[in-house]
Nucleic acid binder design. Sequence first.
DNA 1: ACCAAAAACTAATAAGCGTTAGTTTTGTAA
DNA 2: TTACAAAACTAACGCTTATTAGTTTTTGGT
Lengths: 196, 196
Amino acid sequence: MAKIQTEKNTTKKEVILQKAAALFKTKSYTAASMRELADLVGVEAPSLYNHIGAKSELLREICFKIGNEFIEQTDIIKNSPGTVTEKIGAIIRFHIKKMMENFDEVFVANHDWKHLPEPYLADFLTIRRTYEKSLVSLVEAGIANKEIKAINPYVAVLTILSAVRGLEFWQRNKKNIPPQVLEDDMVLHLLNGLVN
Amino acid sequence: MAKIQTEKNTTKKEVILQKAAALFKTKSYTAASMRELADLVGVEAPSLYNHIGAKSELLREICFKIGNEFIEQTDIIKNSPGTVTEKIGAIIRFHIKKMMENFDEVFVANHDWKHLPEPYLADFLTIRRTYEKSLVSLVEAGIANKEIKAINPYVAVLTILSAVRGLEFWQRNKKNIPPQVLEDDMVLHLLNGLVN
DNA sequence: ACCAAAAACTAATAAGCGTTAGTTTTGTAA
DNA sequence: TTACAAAACTAACGCTTATTAGTTTTTGGT
Protein backbone atom coordinates (compact mmCIF):
# COMPACT_ATOMS: atom_id res chain seq x y z
CA MET A 1 0.00 0.00 0.00
CA ALA A 2 2.22 2.79 -1.21
CA LYS A 3 1.10 5.93 0.60
CA ILE A 4 2.23 8.65 -1.76
CA GLN A 5 1.91 11.37 0.79
CA THR A 6 3.65 14.68 0.77
CA GLU A 7 3.78 17.08 3.68
CA LYS A 8 0.88 17.28 6.14
CA ASN A 9 -1.03 14.13 5.16
CA THR A 10 -1.97 15.50 1.76
CA THR A 11 -1.62 13.36 -1.32
CA LYS A 12 0.24 14.65 -4.35
CA LYS A 13 -3.06 14.95 -6.15
CA GLU A 14 -4.32 17.29 -3.45
CA VAL A 15 -1.20 19.40 -3.87
CA ILE A 16 -1.79 19.52 -7.61
CA LEU A 17 -5.43 20.53 -7.09
CA GLN A 18 -4.49 23.31 -4.71
CA LYS A 19 -1.80 24.69 -7.01
CA ALA A 20 -4.19 24.38 -9.96
CA ALA A 21 -6.82 26.43 -8.17
CA ALA A 22 -4.28 29.15 -7.45
CA LEU A 23 -3.04 29.12 -11.04
CA PHE A 24 -6.50 29.08 -12.61
CA LYS A 25 -7.50 31.96 -10.36
CA THR A 26 -4.70 34.23 -11.52
CA LYS A 27 -4.52 33.24 -15.20
CA SER A 28 -7.97 31.74 -15.81
CA TYR A 29 -8.49 28.12 -16.75
CA THR A 30 -8.03 28.44 -20.51
CA ALA A 31 -4.95 30.65 -20.31
CA ALA A 32 -3.21 28.46 -17.74
CA SER A 33 -1.00 25.73 -19.16
CA MET A 34 -0.10 22.35 -17.76
CA ARG A 35 3.56 23.37 -18.01
CA GLU A 36 2.95 26.31 -15.71
CA LEU A 37 1.11 24.07 -13.30
CA ALA A 38 3.97 21.56 -13.42
CA ASP A 39 6.41 24.37 -12.57
CA LEU A 40 4.34 25.29 -9.53
CA VAL A 41 4.24 21.67 -8.39
CA GLY A 42 7.97 21.30 -9.07
CA VAL A 43 7.82 18.60 -11.69
CA GLU A 44 7.75 18.12 -15.48
CA ALA A 45 4.37 18.45 -17.17
CA PRO A 46 3.92 14.81 -18.24
CA SER A 47 4.53 13.66 -14.66
CA LEU A 48 1.25 15.28 -13.65
CA TYR A 49 -0.55 12.59 -15.61
CA ASN A 50 0.59 9.96 -13.12
CA HIS A 51 -1.86 11.59 -10.71
CA ILE A 52 -4.62 13.07 -12.82
CA GLY A 53 -6.44 12.07 -15.97
CA ALA A 54 -6.74 15.41 -17.73
CA LYS A 55 -6.59 19.15 -17.25
CA SER A 56 -10.37 19.34 -17.27
CA GLU A 57 -10.50 16.86 -14.37
CA LEU A 58 -8.87 19.49 -12.17
CA LEU A 59 -11.51 22.05 -13.07
CA ARG A 60 -14.25 19.50 -12.52
CA GLU A 61 -13.08 18.51 -9.05
CA ILE A 62 -12.71 22.12 -7.97
CA CYS A 63 -16.15 23.15 -9.21
CA PHE A 64 -18.07 20.22 -7.76
CA LYS A 65 -16.27 20.25 -4.42
CA ILE A 66 -17.26 23.87 -3.89
CA GLY A 67 -20.75 23.46 -5.31
CA ASN A 68 -21.53 20.55 -3.02
CA GLU A 69 -20.18 22.32 0.04
CA PHE A 70 -22.51 25.24 -0.55
CA ILE A 71 -25.52 23.00 -1.01
CA GLU A 72 -24.80 20.96 2.11
CA GLN A 73 -24.25 23.88 4.44
CA THR A 74 -27.24 25.80 3.15
CA ASP A 75 -29.49 22.79 3.68
CA ILE A 76 -28.28 22.59 7.27
CA ILE A 77 -29.06 26.24 7.85
CA LYS A 78 -32.48 26.00 6.20
CA ASN A 79 -33.46 23.08 8.43
CA SER A 80 -32.29 24.72 11.66
CA PRO A 81 -34.63 26.66 13.94
CA GLY A 82 -34.84 30.44 13.57
CA THR A 83 -36.58 33.16 11.61
CA VAL A 84 -36.17 33.50 7.86
CA THR A 85 -34.18 36.66 8.42
CA GLU A 86 -31.79 34.85 10.72
CA LYS A 87 -31.37 32.06 8.19
CA ILE A 88 -30.65 34.43 5.34
CA GLY A 89 -28.14 36.22 7.53
CA ALA A 90 -26.47 32.90 8.37
CA ILE A 91 -26.30 31.94 4.70
CA ILE A 92 -24.74 35.28 3.79
CA ARG A 93 -22.18 34.83 6.56
CA PHE A 94 -21.41 31.32 5.39
CA HIS A 95 -20.84 32.55 1.84
CA ILE A 96 -18.49 35.24 3.07
CA LYS A 97 -16.51 32.85 5.29
CA LYS A 98 -16.25 30.23 2.57
CA MET A 99 -15.05 32.84 0.14
CA MET A 100 -12.36 33.97 2.57
CA GLU A 101 -11.21 30.48 3.54
CA ASN A 102 -11.31 28.76 0.16
CA PHE A 103 -10.68 31.80 -1.96
CA ASP A 104 -8.92 30.18 -4.89
CA GLU A 105 -11.40 27.36 -5.34
CA VAL A 106 -14.49 29.52 -4.95
CA PHE A 107 -13.03 32.00 -7.41
CA VAL A 108 -12.36 29.30 -9.99
CA ALA A 109 -15.77 27.70 -9.53
CA ASN A 110 -17.39 31.08 -10.04
CA HIS A 111 -15.34 32.05 -13.08
CA ASP A 112 -14.43 28.95 -15.03
CA TRP A 113 -17.37 26.56 -14.70
CA LYS A 114 -18.20 27.57 -18.26
CA HIS A 115 -15.24 25.52 -19.48
CA LEU A 116 -16.41 22.29 -17.91
CA PRO A 117 -16.80 19.64 -20.60
CA GLU A 118 -20.16 17.99 -21.01
CA PRO A 119 -21.89 16.28 -19.35
CA TYR A 120 -20.38 17.95 -16.28
CA LEU A 121 -21.35 21.41 -17.43
CA ALA A 122 -25.00 20.42 -17.52
CA ASP A 123 -24.71 18.80 -14.09
CA PHE A 124 -23.09 21.87 -12.64
CA LEU A 125 -25.79 24.16 -13.98
CA THR A 126 -28.44 21.87 -12.54
CA ILE A 127 -26.79 22.02 -9.14
CA ARG A 128 -26.62 25.79 -9.31
CA ARG A 129 -30.23 26.17 -10.36
CA THR A 130 -31.30 23.85 -7.56
CA TYR A 131 -29.33 25.95 -5.11
CA GLU A 132 -30.90 29.18 -6.35
CA LYS A 133 -34.38 27.71 -6.14
CA SER A 134 -33.73 26.59 -2.59
CA LEU A 135 -32.83 30.15 -1.63
CA VAL A 136 -35.81 31.55 -3.52
CA SER A 137 -38.17 29.33 -1.56
CA LEU A 138 -36.62 30.59 1.66
CA VAL A 139 -37.20 34.20 0.62
CA GLU A 140 -40.76 33.35 -0.43
CA ALA A 141 -41.40 31.92 3.01
CA GLY A 142 -40.19 35.17 4.51
CA ILE A 143 -42.49 37.19 2.26
CA ALA A 144 -45.48 35.02 3.18
CA ASN A 145 -44.40 35.60 6.78
CA LYS A 146 -44.40 39.38 6.41
CA GLU A 147 -40.82 39.18 7.65
CA ILE A 148 -39.53 40.31 4.29
CA LYS A 149 -40.51 43.00 1.80
CA ALA A 150 -42.69 41.84 -1.09
CA ILE A 151 -40.03 42.20 -3.76
CA ASN A 152 -39.45 39.62 -6.45
CA PRO A 153 -37.72 36.72 -4.66
CA TYR A 154 -35.49 35.92 -7.64
CA VAL A 155 -34.23 39.49 -7.67
CA ALA A 156 -33.52 39.31 -3.95
CA VAL A 157 -31.59 36.05 -4.25
CA LEU A 158 -29.64 37.32 -7.23
CA THR A 159 -28.74 40.49 -5.37
CA ILE A 160 -27.53 38.57 -2.34
CA LEU A 161 -25.54 35.96 -4.25
CA SER A 162 -23.92 38.55 -6.48
CA ALA A 163 -23.03 40.81 -3.58
CA VAL A 164 -21.20 38.09 -1.66
CA ARG A 165 -19.51 36.94 -4.82
CA GLY A 166 -18.13 40.42 -5.21
CA LEU A 167 -15.76 39.69 -2.33
CA GLU A 168 -13.53 38.27 -5.02
CA PHE A 169 -12.40 41.82 -5.60
CA TRP A 170 -11.88 42.35 -1.94
CA GLN A 171 -8.97 40.11 -1.08
CA ARG A 172 -6.45 42.71 -2.22
CA ASN A 173 -7.74 45.28 0.30
CA LYS A 174 -8.25 42.87 3.11
CA LYS A 175 -5.60 44.47 5.30
CA ASN A 176 -7.63 47.66 5.55
CA ILE A 177 -10.84 46.24 6.95
CA PRO A 178 -11.26 43.55 9.60
CA PRO A 179 -13.18 40.54 8.25
CA GLN A 180 -15.77 40.81 10.99
CA VAL A 181 -16.60 44.42 10.03
CA LEU A 182 -16.91 43.39 6.42
CA GLU A 183 -19.22 40.52 7.31
CA ASP A 184 -21.38 42.53 9.67
CA ASP A 185 -21.66 45.52 7.35
CA MET A 186 -22.55 43.47 4.30
CA VAL A 187 -25.22 41.53 6.19
CA LEU A 188 -26.62 44.79 7.55
CA HIS A 189 -26.64 46.35 4.09
CA LEU A 190 -28.34 43.39 2.42
CA LEU A 191 -30.91 42.88 5.19
CA ASN A 192 -31.66 46.40 6.42
CA GLY A 193 -30.53 48.60 3.57
CA LEU A 194 -28.16 51.45 3.06
CA VAL A 195 -30.32 54.42 4.01
CA ASN A 196 -31.30 55.43 7.51
CA MET B 1 -12.70 57.66 -50.36
CA ALA B 2 -13.85 54.08 -50.09
CA LYS B 3 -16.61 54.00 -47.50
CA ILE B 4 -16.40 50.44 -46.27
CA GLN B 5 -19.78 50.52 -44.70
CA THR B 6 -22.01 47.58 -44.15
CA GLU B 7 -25.64 47.76 -43.21
CA LYS B 8 -26.98 50.64 -41.14
CA ASN B 9 -24.03 53.07 -41.31
CA THR B 10 -21.76 50.78 -39.36
CA THR B 11 -18.22 50.16 -40.53
CA LYS B 12 -16.93 46.64 -40.91
CA LYS B 13 -14.75 47.19 -37.87
CA GLU B 14 -17.83 47.94 -35.80
CA VAL B 15 -19.40 44.73 -37.04
CA ILE B 16 -16.27 42.83 -36.05
CA LEU B 17 -16.28 44.45 -32.61
CA GLN B 18 -19.90 43.58 -32.01
CA LYS B 19 -19.46 39.96 -33.11
CA ALA B 20 -16.29 39.73 -31.03
CA ALA B 21 -18.12 40.89 -27.92
CA ALA B 22 -20.79 38.25 -28.47
CA LEU B 23 -18.18 35.56 -29.06
CA PHE B 24 -15.97 36.53 -26.12
CA LYS B 25 -19.06 36.56 -23.92
CA THR B 26 -20.04 32.99 -24.71
CA LYS B 27 -16.59 31.40 -24.99
CA SER B 28 -14.40 33.82 -23.02
CA TYR B 29 -11.61 35.81 -24.60
CA THR B 30 -8.86 33.21 -24.33
CA ALA B 31 -10.97 30.32 -25.55
CA ALA B 32 -12.35 32.22 -28.53
CA SER B 33 -10.34 31.92 -31.73
CA MET B 34 -9.93 34.34 -34.59
CA ARG B 35 -11.19 31.63 -36.92
CA GLU B 36 -14.45 31.41 -34.98
CA LEU B 37 -14.78 35.16 -35.07
CA ALA B 38 -14.16 35.15 -38.81
CA ASP B 39 -16.92 32.58 -39.24
CA LEU B 40 -19.35 34.86 -37.39
CA VAL B 41 -18.36 37.81 -39.54
CA GLY B 42 -18.62 35.69 -42.68
CA VAL B 43 -15.02 35.95 -43.82
CA GLU B 44 -11.71 34.10 -43.62
CA ALA B 45 -9.59 34.74 -40.54
CA PRO B 46 -6.73 36.64 -42.20
CA SER B 47 -9.21 39.08 -43.74
CA LEU B 48 -9.99 40.39 -40.27
CA TYR B 49 -6.50 41.90 -40.19
CA ASN B 50 -7.47 44.34 -42.93
CA HIS B 51 -9.62 46.03 -40.27
CA ILE B 52 -7.94 45.36 -36.94
CA GLY B 53 -4.39 45.17 -35.71
CA ALA B 54 -4.62 42.25 -33.32
CA LYS B 55 -7.00 40.11 -31.32
CA SER B 56 -6.10 41.99 -28.17
CA GLU B 57 -7.12 45.26 -29.82
CA LEU B 58 -10.70 44.01 -29.86
CA LEU B 59 -10.62 43.32 -26.14
CA ARG B 60 -9.01 46.67 -25.47
CA GLU B 61 -11.61 48.65 -27.40
CA ILE B 62 -14.49 46.83 -25.73
CA CYS B 63 -13.12 47.31 -22.21
CA PHE B 64 -12.25 50.99 -22.53
CA LYS B 65 -15.44 51.94 -24.35
CA ILE B 66 -17.52 50.51 -21.50
CA GLY B 67 -15.23 51.80 -18.77
CA ASN B 68 -15.36 55.34 -20.09
CA GLU B 69 -19.13 55.29 -20.50
CA PHE B 70 -19.57 54.36 -16.85
CA ILE B 71 -17.22 57.10 -15.68
CA GLU B 72 -18.88 59.77 -17.79
CA GLN B 73 -22.44 59.00 -16.81
CA THR B 74 -21.60 58.64 -13.13
CA ASP B 75 -19.87 62.02 -13.14
CA ILE B 76 -22.99 63.57 -14.64
CA ILE B 77 -25.16 62.03 -11.94
CA LYS B 78 -22.81 63.04 -9.14
CA ASN B 79 -22.82 66.66 -10.30
CA SER B 80 -26.59 66.87 -10.65
CA PRO B 81 -28.85 68.20 -7.88
CA GLY B 82 -30.48 65.74 -5.48
CA THR B 83 -29.85 63.85 -2.27
CA VAL B 84 -27.11 61.25 -1.99
CA THR B 85 -29.75 58.56 -1.82
CA GLU B 86 -31.28 59.75 -5.08
CA LYS B 87 -27.88 59.81 -6.75
CA ILE B 88 -27.01 56.31 -5.62
CA GLY B 89 -30.38 55.13 -6.86
CA ALA B 90 -29.75 56.79 -10.22
CA ILE B 91 -26.32 55.19 -10.50
CA ILE B 92 -27.75 51.76 -9.73
CA ARG B 93 -30.44 52.28 -12.37
CA PHE B 94 -27.85 53.40 -14.89
CA HIS B 95 -25.78 50.28 -14.23
CA ILE B 96 -28.80 48.07 -14.72
CA LYS B 97 -29.86 49.80 -17.94
CA LYS B 98 -26.34 49.73 -19.36
CA MET B 99 -26.07 46.06 -18.53
CA MET B 100 -29.34 45.34 -20.33
CA GLU B 101 -28.60 47.45 -23.40
CA ASN B 102 -24.91 46.63 -23.93
CA PHE B 103 -24.97 43.19 -22.44
CA ASP B 104 -22.19 41.57 -24.45
CA GLU B 105 -19.71 44.39 -24.05
CA VAL B 106 -20.35 44.91 -20.34
CA PHE B 107 -20.03 41.18 -19.79
CA VAL B 108 -16.70 41.02 -21.59
CA ALA B 109 -15.35 44.09 -19.84
CA ASN B 110 -16.28 42.55 -16.50
CA HIS B 111 -14.87 39.11 -17.23
CA ASP B 112 -11.89 39.45 -19.54
CA TRP B 113 -10.13 42.69 -18.60
CA LYS B 114 -7.57 40.45 -16.93
CA HIS B 115 -6.28 39.45 -20.36
CA LEU B 116 -5.55 42.99 -21.50
CA PRO B 117 -1.88 43.29 -22.41
CA GLU B 118 0.20 45.88 -20.62
CA PRO B 119 0.20 48.82 -20.43
CA TYR B 120 -3.55 48.75 -21.01
CA LEU B 121 -4.18 46.44 -18.10
CA ALA B 122 -2.62 48.94 -15.71
CA ASP B 123 -4.64 51.77 -17.28
CA PHE B 124 -7.86 49.83 -16.97
CA LEU B 125 -7.25 49.06 -13.31
CA THR B 126 -6.53 52.72 -12.67
CA ILE B 127 -9.80 53.70 -14.29
CA ARG B 128 -11.68 51.17 -12.21
CA ARG B 129 -10.07 52.23 -8.97
CA THR B 130 -10.85 55.84 -9.76
CA TYR B 131 -14.45 54.91 -10.41
CA GLU B 132 -14.72 53.00 -7.14
CA LYS B 133 -13.21 55.88 -5.20
CA SER B 134 -15.67 58.27 -6.76
CA LEU B 135 -18.55 56.11 -5.53
CA VAL B 136 -16.97 55.73 -2.12
CA SER B 137 -16.78 59.49 -1.71
CA LEU B 138 -20.46 59.73 -2.59
CA VAL B 139 -21.35 57.19 0.08
CA GLU B 140 -19.12 59.00 2.58
CA ALA B 141 -20.99 62.22 1.88
CA GLY B 142 -24.22 60.40 2.63
CA ILE B 143 -22.86 59.07 5.90
CA ALA B 144 -21.68 62.53 6.96
CA ASN B 145 -25.17 63.66 5.99
CA LYS B 146 -26.85 61.10 8.22
CA GLU B 147 -28.71 60.04 5.10
CA ILE B 148 -26.90 56.72 5.09
CA LYS B 149 -26.05 54.12 7.71
CA ALA B 150 -22.55 54.33 9.14
CA ILE B 151 -21.28 51.16 7.49
CA ASN B 152 -17.90 50.91 5.84
CA PRO B 153 -18.26 52.83 2.56
CA TYR B 154 -16.02 50.45 0.64
CA VAL B 155 -18.20 47.54 1.68
CA ALA B 156 -21.30 49.42 0.59
CA VAL B 157 -19.85 50.26 -2.83
CA LEU B 158 -18.62 46.73 -3.32
CA THR B 159 -22.03 45.35 -2.43
CA ILE B 160 -23.80 47.65 -4.86
CA LEU B 161 -21.39 47.14 -7.77
CA SER B 162 -21.39 43.38 -7.31
CA ALA B 163 -25.15 43.17 -7.07
CA VAL B 164 -25.77 45.01 -10.33
CA ARG B 165 -23.02 43.03 -12.00
CA GLY B 166 -24.92 39.90 -11.07
CA LEU B 167 -27.48 40.76 -13.72
CA GLU B 168 -25.13 38.91 -16.03
CA PHE B 169 -26.86 35.79 -14.83
CA TRP B 170 -30.23 37.29 -15.39
CA GLN B 171 -30.50 37.59 -19.15
CA ARG B 172 -31.63 33.98 -19.50
CA ASN B 173 -34.66 34.55 -17.25
CA LYS B 174 -35.53 37.96 -18.59
CA LYS B 175 -38.84 36.85 -20.05
CA ASN B 176 -40.21 36.07 -16.61
CA ILE B 177 -39.74 39.45 -14.96
CA PRO B 178 -40.35 42.88 -16.49
CA PRO B 179 -37.15 44.98 -16.53
CA GLN B 180 -38.84 47.76 -14.57
CA VAL B 181 -39.74 45.40 -11.72
CA LEU B 182 -36.19 44.11 -11.66
CA GLU B 183 -34.80 47.63 -11.55
CA ASP B 184 -37.21 48.88 -8.90
CA ASP B 185 -36.83 45.82 -6.68
CA MET B 186 -33.05 45.81 -6.80
CA VAL B 187 -32.87 49.52 -5.97
CA LEU B 188 -35.30 48.99 -3.10
CA HIS B 189 -33.32 46.03 -1.82
CA LEU B 190 -29.97 47.83 -1.97
CA LEU B 191 -31.25 51.09 -0.49
CA ASN B 192 -33.91 50.01 2.01
CA GLY B 193 -33.05 46.38 2.69
CA LEU B 194 -34.79 43.08 2.50
CA VAL B 195 -36.55 42.92 5.85
CA ASN B 196 -39.67 44.82 6.81
C1' DA C 1 19.64 -6.41 -0.59
C1' DC C 2 15.99 -7.31 -3.66
C1' DC C 3 11.74 -6.67 -6.11
C1' DA C 4 7.74 -4.55 -7.66
C1' DA C 5 5.12 -0.58 -8.02
C1' DA C 6 4.92 4.37 -8.26
C1' DA C 7 6.39 8.34 -10.20
C1' DA C 8 9.70 10.79 -12.33
C1' DC C 9 12.07 11.74 -16.74
C1' DT C 10 12.89 12.72 -22.20
C1' DA C 11 11.05 12.81 -26.62
C1' DA C 12 7.57 13.30 -29.58
C1' DT C 13 2.86 13.80 -31.57
C1' DA C 14 -1.10 15.98 -33.64
C1' DA C 15 -3.84 19.83 -33.35
C1' DG C 16 -4.78 24.55 -32.79
C1' DC C 17 -3.32 29.21 -32.18
C1' DG C 18 -2.49 34.29 -33.88
C1' DT C 19 -0.54 36.27 -37.51
C1' DT C 20 2.17 37.35 -42.06
C1' DA C 21 3.13 37.11 -47.04
C1' DG C 22 1.74 37.16 -51.44
C1' DT C 23 -1.93 37.15 -54.70
C1' DT C 24 -6.49 37.83 -56.56
C1' DT C 25 -10.95 39.85 -56.49
C1' DT C 26 -13.96 43.72 -55.66
C1' DG C 27 -15.49 48.35 -55.62
C1' DT C 28 -15.11 53.20 -56.71
C1' DA C 29 -13.70 57.47 -58.89
C1' DA C 30 -11.76 59.81 -63.04
C1' DT D 1 -12.74 51.75 -69.53
C1' DT D 2 -8.85 52.30 -66.99
C1' DA D 3 -6.48 52.80 -62.65
C1' DC D 4 -5.93 52.46 -57.94
C1' DA D 5 -6.97 51.19 -53.44
C1' DA D 6 -9.50 48.31 -50.29
C1' DA D 7 -10.48 43.94 -48.87
C1' DA D 8 -10.95 39.42 -49.83
C1' DC D 9 -8.51 34.99 -50.66
C1' DT D 10 -4.90 30.77 -50.07
C1' DA D 11 -0.87 29.12 -48.09
C1' DA D 12 2.04 28.95 -44.68
C1' DC D 13 4.90 30.28 -40.63
C1' DG D 14 6.46 29.61 -35.95
C1' DC D 15 4.75 28.68 -31.61
C1' DT D 16 2.11 26.66 -27.90
C1' DT D 17 -1.07 23.38 -26.38
C1' DA D 18 -2.60 18.92 -23.93
C1' DT D 19 -1.34 14.56 -24.01
C1' DT D 20 1.04 9.79 -25.08
C1' DA D 21 4.88 6.47 -25.41
C1' DG D 22 8.75 4.60 -23.73
C1' DT D 23 12.37 4.63 -20.33
C1' DT D 24 14.73 5.52 -16.06
C1' DT D 25 14.77 6.71 -11.29
C1' DT D 26 12.82 6.61 -6.77
C1' DT D 27 10.38 4.51 -3.12
C1' DG D 28 8.71 1.18 0.32
C1' DG D 29 7.85 -3.47 1.94
C1' DT D 30 9.95 -8.04 2.75
